[in-house]
Design a binder for these strands. Structure first.
Lengths: 226, 226
DNA sequence: ACCTGAACACCGTTCAAGT
DNA sequence: ACCTGAACACCGTTCAAGT
């Protein structure tokens, strides 16, 4: 009887206690680990330790390990602030793409996750809708819009990725000069053009490369006019 | 003395025995696991088991777990047969890109690895050089060539990735109709364009989307003319 | 030179119990 | 409703030993 009454009290007060951590707290802690120590350092146990609790506590907030990756993706994309609508559709498209590029470069270790994990959070969907809106203003619709959207996100995702893992990418901490030196050590008669761009990469910076590539890409975009 | 002589014999005969597995065998086995059971199923132990040996044996052929990922990347890219050189540079660029696209779609589970892991094997460098060669024939050189190359690989890597993990991507085994249904369950006034392309995706096929996107992209490419 | 078993530190997660 | 420790199956890798 007494126990029963106590159980009832518990079910309304102590049992219905507020969550110990908010989703924002988890996101911030998870992203901090990735930023500071790399992707490999993010584990259920490391995140729990950083929050000052045991591993099992996390299962009150995420379904499993895969959910933890989504936490990081959402944390990164939440930093995107969709720019105000002004200018033509090309300018708007460039502005959103540039903002996305900025955010990804701010969290290079998280990029593989952003490119690889599928999240349906508002943070992700809002950015997608903003890109689509810019294209729609350019006259794209239906399948035309679909293809253009896939192309733009492809370009964006790819550019971030290529800088990270392409043949000219630098490993974490490795000076760019060494990578280029390694490319130059390859047989020149077999890889003449790789030599060429390695030399160019030495004098270029990724920011400007992205801007040029993006501008050229956007300039070439046009609805099929069917 | 006798033992010494025996040791010498061993060092020339039994000790210098040929490797138990070739690199090709490791590559094929690793890729088979990924193709059949997904990325998560590839472990040192699972690969060893498939080869009928113990986990430690693998360390005679790869440096560590990360090396195992490179094995898969190289196995996939080794399937690329660079098309014969003919036609204009745009046609050639499209041909190589299409071939790469074909190979990646043949191993969808391996795509995240291909996009994310850096390999410097000839398989990878040869494809890069072929793309560069096509662009060079189009008049690109130096920094121009660098930017164009990054853009093309970006487009390619991104397109494969977007189909795999973009907002309209299907999880392994999940019918495309369900994904689209889920998008349509979103508030239409907030995501009007996502609704639009979801409907278009229902009637489209990725092959044709890639071809259209690629053609449009290549058509827009041109050296800066400085 | 190449192979291999035992052992270790670490991981995600199930289970059962606590408030 | 939310928290948590013990325990389990699994992982990559070190070590030492074998041919």
């Amino acid at each position: 009887m007494y126990l029963n009454r106590r159980d009832e009290r518990l079910s309304k007060q102590e049992m219905g206690r507020p969550p110990k951590f908010s989703r924002d707290q988890l996101q911030a802690a998870a992203l901090a680990i990735v930023d500071e120590q790399g992707l490999g350092a993010l584990t259920m146990r490391s995140l729990a330790a950083r929050l000052g609790t045991g591993p099992m506590t996390l299962y009150n907030h995420v379904a499993d390990r895969a959910d933890l990756d989504l936490l990081v993706v959402d944390a990164v994309l939440a930093e995107v602030t969709v720019p105000r609508r002004r200018g033509g559709w090309r300018a708007r498209l460039e502005a959103i793409a540039t903002e996305l590029w900025r955010v990804m470069r701010a969290h290079p270790a998280a990029v593989p996750l952003v490119l690889t994990r599928r999240s349906r959070s508002p943070a992700v969907l809002d950015v997608a809708e903003a890109l689509l809106d810019a294209l729609a203003r350019g006259g794209f619709a239906g399948r035309d819009l679909l293809v253009a959207f896939r192309s733009v996100t492809a370009f964006l995702a790819g550019f971030a990725q290529v800088e990270l893992a392409g043949p000219l990418a630098t490993t974490a901490g490795e000076p760019a000069g060494e990578v280029i030196a390694r490319v130059r050590a390859l047989p020149a008669e077999r890889y003449p053009h790789l030599h060429d761009i390695a030399a160019a990469a030495l004098r270029s910076d990724p920011e400007a490369e992205f801007r040029d590539g993006l501008r050229r890409f956007v300039a070439g975009l046009a609805p099929s006019g069917r």
